[in-house]
Design a protein around this nucleic acid. Structure first.
Lengths: 339, 339
DNA sequence: GTTTGCGGTTGAGACGATTCAAAAGAATCT
DNA sequence: AGATTCTTTTGAATCGTCTCAACCGCAAAC
């Protein structure tokens, strides 16, 4: 309604619009007297600069989009917080979008972000191959892949999921487990596929070990984990695995919950290890062993790469940063089992 | 870089810019033949409409800001998802901002949102009195308070926190508890103050019941809850409360964790009830009793009110919607205690 | 007294899309 | 054929800010 513009300010301060603009953007080149007059006019009118018009004129936005697979997974929230902390220092803004694992939603968000002419996009893509993203980048919106492998056409930050899976597998084997269940979504999700490959390789390297596999729907939620847990609990004891490696902590928490409701003890009857080491993992029924990822660092690095590319697009060379995951042992896998 | 504009499309399609705009906004008034030509040109050039310019011209934005107290609290994530689902249906966008309980951050976010000329703002304010918000509304940005009491100057949605506290208190008393600890942040946080007032009134109504109070820092985190739990666990048994009511589930989870590490059984030695009923509450070490709030509904209703105000600002009357909380009993308070 | 330099200030274009009055074309009727 | 109506298309004006070449005093330099 009552939104004032630069012209009204200029009028009240008896200067030209150019001068008001200067006061706003390069106050040092304006004489103290006029500067003061302009500030007063701004205050009196309650003028708030229209960033939309500014953006249209200068062509550069101050916001970056972050598209994640699942906002209700604290892992992504932590990544987002990492990104935001860096953005803050560059008085930029991060807008968080949730694809919820749905390619349609992802694409709608990307469309919207491109239409807004955001400075750039950080994304954990739903699908590995994404011509859409390349076109987007080709049209001039820088893209950084988060927790995803590099295609060479853009920057990326990731954690070595294969190594993470391997570490988890080796840990369980070392604890004496010989029947290990991998609980994960469809292999089309790269993270799932890699973590699975990792644990498989660990199993393959250990004689007498077998690996079982359950694939779930692409939403790696607590409920999904619980459902798998129910099925496992219903198996006759001799068919049951002695340990479960879940593709993320949310599923591990659900799985754990199912064990509890069916009177199976963790880790005595069945050991569990999750992935991500979200804060809730330590607070679980049985504190959850997990593979820790540097969550905030992931977000921070992603936006650093983006800002680097934006600052000097000509000279920028795409890079891929890969972090190493850590093993965090808690009670859910603490027991040594006789082989 | 290579971003095309409407003029280039017009040139290629051999029509005027007005026609291209019509194809984009009211395709039905353009003859099929030209429409087709324009679409082809758009595709060939990879043209993406510049929402910034559009916004500047039409004066109305398609995004709403949602400023929450703590993104890492799943409660707010659920509120956000509720809001987003409605926004989606109105092809609008929700941008999520985290004030992290810091008035400075909150204000910076509000400034940014106002500069972007967002359609409106949904906010869980850090402080109860907020002249800033009223000025903002006065300058023409509609504001809806979320989980906050109405000031009469704007719409609001909230859950009756006093009632929630009362229900929690009554439940514990009914279970035979006579020494009840309230674990919450400073009373300057309205939610905390109300929940406390509720439990106090329940305690006052029951003879022979005493209430203890611990105030923490304003960040109601898992770590904060754990710290309080540590202190409580260190008390001599006769000084210890027999039940704890935590101001939110995150703290309850931390508190619970501290009990476990100090060998105190829940609910035998100490019962716990939380607030919010986030998904992780059910998955906790001991499944957590909690006061459930209609989280998604809160977000949905908030944005409904906002859209209503935006649709017809003249005739709009500010409203306050208040929901009722529910008691969810789980194992952490399941035991009946001898008085 | 004219020139040169300089700190301040000005104001006329952009930026890219929308809108709308008016023009142009096509179709129908007398 | 000319008048009338209806359908399409046009293009100039507009949204609010930034940029930059030009300009204006004024003082120092010559």
């Amino acid at each position: 309604m009552a939104t004032r513009n630069i012209k009204e300010v200029a009028q009240l301060a008896r200067v030209s619009v150019g001068t008001v603009s200067n006061v706003l953007n390069r106050p040092e080149i304006v004489s103290p007297a006029t500067r003061e007059r302009v500030f007063e006019a701004i205050k009196k009118l309650g003028f708030v600069r229209n960033e939309v018009a500014r953006h249209l004129r200068v062509g550069r936005s101050r916001t970056v989009g972050l598209v994640v697979l699942d906002v209700s997974n604290p892992f992504f929230v932590d990544v987002a917080q990492g990104a935001e902390s860096v953005a803050d220092d560059h008085d930029s803004m991060v807008v968080l979008c949730n694809s919820a694992g749905d390619p349609g939603r992802e694409r709608r968000h990307l469309d919207q972000l491109e239409q807004q002419r955001v400075m750039g996009i950080l994304i954990t893509p739903v699908e590995m191959e994404s011509p859409w993203l390349e076109e987007l980048a080709g049209r001039g919106t820088p893209v950084v892949l988060v927790d995803s492998p590099a295609t060479g056409l853009q920057c990326s930050v990731a954690v070595d999921d294969r190594l993470g899976g391997q570490i988890a597998g080796a840990h369980l084997i070392e604890r004496g487990h010989r029947r290990i269940l991998f609980v994960g979504g469809p292999p089309s999700i790269r993270q799932v596929a890699d973590r699975h490959a990792g644990v498989s390789s660990a199993v393959a390297a250990a004689d007498g070990t077998v690996e079982l596999l359950t694939s779930t729907s692409p939403t790696l939620t607590v409920a999904e984990g619980r459902a798998v847990g129910e099925r496992v609990a219903a198996l006759p004891p001799e068919e049951r695995p002695t340990a479960a490696f879940c593709a993320n902590d949310m599923m591990a928490l659900g799985f754990l919950q199912a064990m509890a409701t069916h009177g199976l003890r963790v880790p005595e009857d069945l050991a569990i290890i999750g992935y991500d080491d979200i804060d809730f993992a330590a607070a679980a029924a049985v504190p959850l062993s997990s593979i820790r990822q540097p969550r905030e660092l992931l977000g921070r690095t992603a936006i650093d790469l983006l800002l680097e590319e934006v600052a000097d697009p000509e000279q920028h060379r795409h890079r891929q940063v890969i972090f190493q995951p850590d093993l965090v042992i808690r009670e859910s896998s603490a027991l040594r089992r006789d082989a």
